[in-house]
Design a protein around this nucleic acid. Structure first.
Lengths: 330, 330
DNA sequence: TGACGGGTTGTTAGCGCTCACATGAGAGCG
DNA sequence: CGCTCTCATGTGAGCGCTAACAACCCGTCA
């Protein structure tokens, strides 16, 4: 920096001012400095800067170490939003979700002086691990459970899974089905809990008593297993599967048994994964707006950091995508 | 730090020594210091440390901003490997792949003093953008094109796409097919180029002249479109699709036309995505070992940083997963 | 004409840490 | 018993930057 200063014939402080866009620098001086910076290929040392400003312009993201649809999409979307807002993103994946791993991840980020923390917390376990850790920076939890008992400077944002589930269920009810079975995801996942709850609510709102839900994992294998069991034990008229993979497995099992999804049975999934438009039959499903979710998360952190708490929505609404599996004609 | 020092009755330098595991500290002193650290909840300031050591223990990852199977899986796997080796990972996604975006991403990381850089470079464009940027730290490009004209301190590692493609093609040839069509991915992607090349090689090795390949995108929509065209123009006996999504779209198109994949026509995909075991019919495909890929990338960076260049394999071998779509009986 | 004020630039200190070197205490040896 | 050597610890400087303050110039106004 002092090299630049002498090359431009000014003091290092003036260089700093130019770098930080300070207003009171004469345009001609500014230009001379910028010239010198370019000529010398100067690059400001961010460690030194962070040392004195106590800001790193970095956000830490803790996310489950899985290539599952939800967490991954959330991560990508969040990174985009962060970058747009001038933040860098550091990532730590967690293989296990115990409080200890969480503490380790969080401490690593605190050691590195992140300005804020985002925890992609799909399960109760992760969320509870967060609750236990004292954190001196704003924390956003990305999950659909806004009523979580979070610490003072923690906020949750998420996609409104419950609403999505109601959309899916309503669609099936509107098509005349009264026995809408729910194949639920693992119940330690918020998304699974909320989709189950949404399904229950919508059925109740229609005065329909649904069959007992079936609980499974998230994978197509799980869906296949459930499908085989249903084929053996008797099929409902409609199924709302907790995600597209489950729906895919169900379609497989039904195809094996000669059951025509979309005709003999209506099926709706959740996620609108790449490819679900080409399942056999193409899957009616619920699409989540991850981009907006990322923006919301950033807004919350920004708000906490500037002292003007964000007042925007905590939940982002998903939308229904209708395809043939639910019996639509298109 | 000085607080800790006085609390433990030593100098700040001794505290530093304890923190860095310096050998010549008396065990009893060390214990006293560690005690004080715990009691005071002291946490070393990494900015100050980075300022003087010129190391951040952070690796930067530049990756395309897509939730596509390959890049995402690679990212997750790499983060795991990095963490295991004691590195933190910062991520920047690129929406566009021009040299400018690349320069921006790389410079941001250099500004922040990463110790090394990983570029998930699936396309020619990205790779070329890297080639143009001067980088003072080790760079690993994750791509299947090891013969890339990289800079002095850049190395490419990847999954051996060509070998995978040969496995897939060989499988079809072994089952007696002589008209193995390749539905290729976008040809600015290395993976697509290499899968095409592998298919050509294997056909040549068997003395078979394959039909002209069809080029498409990566999506199931693309696969569907190609499938419809094939149905109209005439079907080959076997198809090697450049990825599972394309295969899924093909299956869809063929199902629409009443063509039975696995019987009337053999199909092999590439990726072994979640769910491909439940496509209709379940898809024979090629599985990539992303975990090993991540480890290889870390090893290369570690080698470059320690001055002992890594001598391990640059390419990781994929494996064939046989299912019903290729006509297998299971 | 001189006091005042705003815009521009320079000077100094210090962020929290590690490195290089200095110091001191004790062990080993002739 | 004095010398050297080693291990344990302390001291001082400085990494590159920004914040706070000081200094200066120049135009304005009474």
């Amino acid at each position: 920096m002092s090299d630049v200063a002498s090359a431009a014939g000014v003091s290092h402080q003036t260089v700093s001012r130019v770098l930080n866009g300070h207003p009171s620098v004469r345009p001609e001086t500014r230009e001379r400095v910028q010239d010198a910076i370019a000529r010398l290929g100067y690059r400001r040392n961010s460690a030194a800067r962070a040392l004195v400003t106590r800001r790193t312009d970095t956000l830490g993201v803790v996310t489950p170490a899985s290539a599952l649809y939800g967490p991954t999409s959330t991560l990508v979307a969040f990174e985009q939003a962060a970058r747009e807002a001038g933040w860098y993103v550091s990532v730590a994946t967690m293989r296990r979700f115990d409080a200890d791993s969480m503490r380790t991840a969080v401490e690593h980020f605190l050691d590195h002086g992140v300005d804020g923390l985002v925890v992609i917390a799909p399960t109760t376990e992760v969320a509870q691990a967060v609750v236990g850790v004292e954190v001196p920076v704003p924390v956003v939890m990305i999950s659909s459970a806004p009523e979580l008992p979070l610490g003072a400077n923690a906020v949750a944002v998420g996609v409104d899974q419950r609403f999505g589930a109601r959309l899916a269920t309503r669609h099936l009810l509107e098509r005349g089905h009264r026995d809408v079975l729910h194949v639920a995801g693992p119940q330690d996942w918020f998304d699974a809990q909320d989709r189950l709850a949404g399904w229950r609510e919508e059925c109740a709102a229609w005065g329909v008593t649904p069959p007992e839900p079936v609980t499974a994992g998230w994978s197509a294998d799980d869906g296949y297993a459930v499908g085989r069991r249903l084929v053996a034990d008797g099929l409902p008229g409609a199924i709302f599967a907790a995600n597209d993979q489950l729906a895919l497995g169900l379609e497989h099992a039904f195809a094996d048994a000669g059951v025509h999804v979309g005709e003999d049975l209506a099926l709706v999934g959740f996620d609108d994964e790449a490819g679900s438009a080409h399942y056999l039959p193409p899957l009616t499903t619920v699409r989540q707006d991850f981009a907006r979710l990322g923006e919301r998360a950033i807004a919350v952190i920004h708000g906490a950091l500037t002292g003007k708490p964000d007042t925007g929505a905590r939940l982002v609404a998903p939308e229904l995508v209708v395809r043939r599996s639910s019996g639509a004609t298109s």
